[in-house]
Design a protein around this nucleic acid. Structure first.
Lengths: 204, 204
DNA sequence: GTCTATAGCCTGATAGAC
DNA sequence: GTCTATCAGGCTATAGAC
């Protein structure tokens, strides 16, 4: 008998759990929590609905597992800013990492966007505690750099918002961006555009 | 998208149709199309479900009516850019108008965001025809201005994306922005931040 | 024009055979 | 561990009384 939170032990269990989370990411990120159906997730994972519910006790549990796993990795680029580094280069590297995440993990970005647009009912506490603290710390660091004249003055919190916004836009609004650009790949010109933008904004 | 039906004639009909669209905006913008229920919309509009379905033939029809009404007003700020105006001021005025729309029409912004994140199944044609054309025209205007040295060189399409992204972020991610800022009103510092950003980016 | 009643399907979740 | 069968409730939409 295994505890509810114990890691899966067999190869089949690992494979099925992974398939479920993969399918759930696809469905939740395009339809939101209420719009997603267990049937659809099970079908995309290649399992029957009851079989899926053998691995996760409920729809809610799948969604929580996804969000939990996501929040871990989602804030890593922010934590990776080095207070000892060269200020402008640190910011540009952060922008680059966030943009790469939009390109390589667009569904994760949309899952997060969905949750927040819907009022963040499941992660509001994390946003106003852990996230707020991390952002406040980073904002303080940015303000130091500004006070030392190493980057130009702007509102540090809004600077961080702008980075989130500009990078995640390429994942969340991918369809619109591609519809407007036609054949041109969004990620061809985006890195240079964002680098130019933040160089001009922050060069003292 | 379906064509608009005949306008309602009586005062009661006008009032009820307006109440339904108002309620539907609230529900669709927070739960997406599939996550929204006719029951919830009817209840928020103060009508019974069958009564609601007397005014609109289906859930789909309500959603279409909302999107149709929205697309009209959503692109007005872009159309209002004056080719004869002073380039930098025209862009800044566009940014200002878009930000004001995020503040005054956040649910409309989220409705649009939801639709696009879900793959824009109902407006994809409009995006790649009407919207693309409008953006291409504006991009051409921006390129003229850049060629004349009246604003600095950047990728014109990505410049437009950046304006959408930065302004709509304050509506779509309102919950997150407020969670991070605490007591501070997002719209207090946002206008100045965005003006600074685009002045530094575009001043030749 | 608005209601009650309900059709008919889909939902999340469970029971029990194998 | 995985399946078929199934539940109770929620879903969109319709029928028909008034």
């Amino acid at each position: 008998m295994t505890l509810a939170k114990a890691r899966p032990r067999t190869r089949i269990q690992k494979k099925n759990r992974a398939a479920i989370l993969e399918a759930a990411l696809e469905v939740f990120s395009t339809h939101g929590f209420r719009g997603a159906t267990v049937d659809q997730i099970a079908s995309e994972a290649g399992l029957s609905k009851p079989n899926l519910l053998y691995y996760f006790p409920s729809k809610e549990a799948i969604h929580s597992a996804l969000l939990e796993r996501l929040l871990d990795t989602w804030l890593d680029p922010l934590r990776a800013i080095d207070p000892q580094g060269e200020p402008l280069e640190e910011v540009l590297a952060y922008v680059r990492r966030k943009l790469e995440m939009s390109q390589s993990l667009p569904r994760e970005s949309r899952l997060f966007a969905m949750e927040v647009i819907q009022g963040a009912p499941r992660i509001h506490d994390v946003l106003s505690s852990d996230l707020k603290q991390l952002v406040d710390e980073t904002a303080a660091l940015l303000e130091d750099w500004m006070a030392q004249g190493r980057i130009a003055r702007v509102h540090p919190h809004h600077l961080i918002f702008s980075i989130w916004s500009l990078t995640q836009h390429y994942a969340d609004f991918d369809v619109q961006v591609r519809a407007v650009l036609g054949r041109e790949d969004p990620f061809a010109a985006a890195p240079a555009f964002l680098e130019t933008l933040y160089r001009r904004l922050l060069t003292p």
